[in-house]
């Protein structure tokens, strides 16, 4: 009975992860110009696994939503930013949504 309950919880957790998009925050050096940093948005949009991108020069922040609750390896994230001409100094996976991050930045 106990193992059945654990299996049910695990199954529900997996189902929850599959239906919620994953949000990743990247701390980036070199973000000083919107005209140039537009390339970051374009680079992530060209990937098939990213559904939304948010860039804040003020917060040195690039935040993305990954489709279907999947993840992107740190090395791939770093390569995408490096190929766009910027330097990644931190990566964090967070529970909040991209819209919540936008609202948080807008309210500061």
């Amino acid at each position: 009975m106990k193992s059945l309950r654990l299996m049910l919880i695990f199954t529900l957790a997996l189902a929850s992860a599959a239906t919620h998009a994953k949000t990743i925050r990247l701390e980036v050096n070199g973000l000083v110009c919107a005209f140039c940093a537009n390339g970051i948005t374009e680079a992530f949009n060209r990937r098939g696994d990213v559904s939304d991108v948010f860039v804040s020069l003020e917060h040195r922040l690039v935040a993305i939503t990954v489709k279907d609750g999947k993840d992107i390896a740190d090395a791939e994230l770093t390569k995408t930013l490096t190929d766009a001409g910027y330097t990644v100094v931190g990566i964090a996976r967070v529970d909040t949504t991209l819209d919540a991050i936008r609202a948080e930045v807008a309210n500061e």
């Binding site: 140039c36 537009n38 970051i40 374009e42 680079a43 190929d83």
Partner: peptide, 10 residues
């Protein structure tokens, strides 16, 4: 202008 190169792929 400021720079002779735009963003990658653009």
């Amino acid at each position: 202008h400021a720079r002779p190169i735009g963003y990658a792929g653009g």
